[in-house]
Each structure stands twice: as C-alpha cells, then as structure tokens.
Amino acid sequence: MNYLTQRLLTFPLVLLGVSLLVFFAIRLVPGDAIIAMLGTEAGLLTEAQRASLAAYFGLDQPIVVQYGRWLAGLFEGNLGISVTYGKPVLEVILARFPLTLELSLLSMLISLAVGIPAGVFAATRVDRPSDLVVRLFAMLGQSTPSFVVGLVLIYFLSVTFRMLPAMGSFTPLFVDPIGNLSQMILPSITLGLSFAAAVTRISRSAMLDVLSDDYVRTARSKGASQRDVVWKHALPNALIPVVTLSGVEFGYLLGGAVIVEQIFALPGLGRLTLDAISQRDYPLVQGAVLFIALNFLVVNLLVDLAYAALDPRIRLGGK
C-alpha cells in the first residue's frame, strides 16, 4: 500500500490512542475524580455536594461512557474548566500557545540554518582540521543540556552587560517585531543548540553516505563540478534523514520549551503545564498535554509529507 495512504490512515488511530492515554492517565491520580477535577478544594465539600457534583459531571456513569462524553466534548473544543483560572481550558491554552509555537519554530529554523551547512561543510572536508572542529562543537552541543546553556547565557549577560533579558510578559511578534525578537532570540538559541548539533551530525553522516553512492560517481563521470555534485546530486538525498529527524525533534523542542520557558520566565504553554502540575489543576494538565501532543502529531504528519515530496520512491510508490 502507498506509504502516504498508510500514514494518513493510522493518524486518527494514534490520535485516539493519545486521547485514551491522557484520559485514563488522569484517572490514575490517587484519590477520586472529584479531587482530580477540583484539586484541594474538594476537601471542603459535603457528601451530598460530592454526589451531586459527580452526577453533574457524569462521574456516576461507567468509565467508558465518561470517556465517550469527554471525547465528544473534545470535538466541540471543550477541554473542561481550569480550576486555577476559572476559565475554559482551551481559552487558557490558546492564550499561551503562540509563544511556545514561536519559540519552537524559531529554534528549529536556527538549528536547520546552522546545522545543514555545517554538516555539508564538514562532510566535504572529512578528517581535515575544519571537519574535526565542526565535530567537536557538534559533540559538545549535543552533550550540553538546555538549562545549562540558558543559565550560562543569562550569567554572561548579567555579569558582562549588567542587563537581563526582558522577562515576565510576552511581546507578540506582530505587535512589536523587534521587541519580540530581542526577547525570543536567547531562548531560541538555548532551545535550539542541541538540535543544531544533532542536525549537524546527521547531515554530515548522511552526506558522507551519499557522497560514496554510485550516482554521485555517475555525476562526476559526466563532468559535473564539485559544487553541482554536492548541492544538486548529494544534498537532496542527504536531506531525507535530516527531515525525518526534524519531525521527531520538533517534539523535543515542544517539550524542551518547558525548561527554557522556566529559565527565561516566559509565559508559554510549557510553564503553564508546569504550574498546572504543581497546583494540581488536572483539567488544565490534561488539556495542555493533549494539545501539545496533537501539535506534535500534526507536525510529524507534515514532515512525513515533506519527506515524501523529497523522495519520489515514496511519492510515486513502486519497487
């Protein structure tokens, strides 16, 4: 069967699995569902109040029915009410999401823009000093956690320049592009560094593989220049694993945003999730986790489509 059809067919299945996992995971929280939904305030309720609340939320129904109702709610954008904010969960999430999305996309952009050329550069100078330098930096970059990078950046800023990046509130890109970028650039670098290192490494090794392939030799036998060989014949083939990696890594970027937002005190989705966990705001935790997973899945699907666009063997099927 065609790869893309297969991919599109399993997508809703995985979505369903994700929703199942998130729904039942929250039900595993010690204590009953009322506590899970209302947090510590549940302790103030009387038995009768509990029972009527349970009936109101449908908690007296069998768990499968509860899941069905919750799932049906999802389709209408109803993720429940946040206990701490007293507002619909979706509304709270959407207010924080643009920052996290921008942060992830920006760091991905930086990583690819740095990593691919660096990898190609190193591969074409294999085992020469410039290759060794690139490899060393890539190795260090991959081994340095984002919170160490972030702390070091803040330390140098505050010690050398006696200034701190703007924290606390978020300046949207379309309101004040310069203010936004000056606020986002350090967090993006922090988040993207290890991904840039990974892109460098995989681009380098993919290029090395491809450069020894038969069709590269064919191109050379035609009299193609080194530049044509590298950029026209080798790179399009070497990009295939890089694109695959990008899809997976986007998830790590979304997850890593939790840490980076914490370090730079940015009010994004990651910090929202973290606060929700410490405040036991379970509907919010559930909604945020589901929302991030959904984004990750959509990006992964898009990456697979891009992958297919790059590789005619997948796009057109065949042997």
Partner: peptide, 19 residues
C-alpha cells in the same frame, strides 16, 4: 570527464540519482 571520456557502470540500479 563526460566530454572526452564517458563511463557506464556495473550497477544500473544505483548509478542513477533516485530524486
């Protein structure tokens, strides 16, 4: 290469660029 000396190879399956 190409202009004066042309070459064909053993493996037709891998000697053409797949993309």
């Amino acid at each position: 290469r190409g202009r004066e000396i042309g070459m064909i190879f053993q493996e037709p399956m891998t000697s053409l660029n797949p993309v």
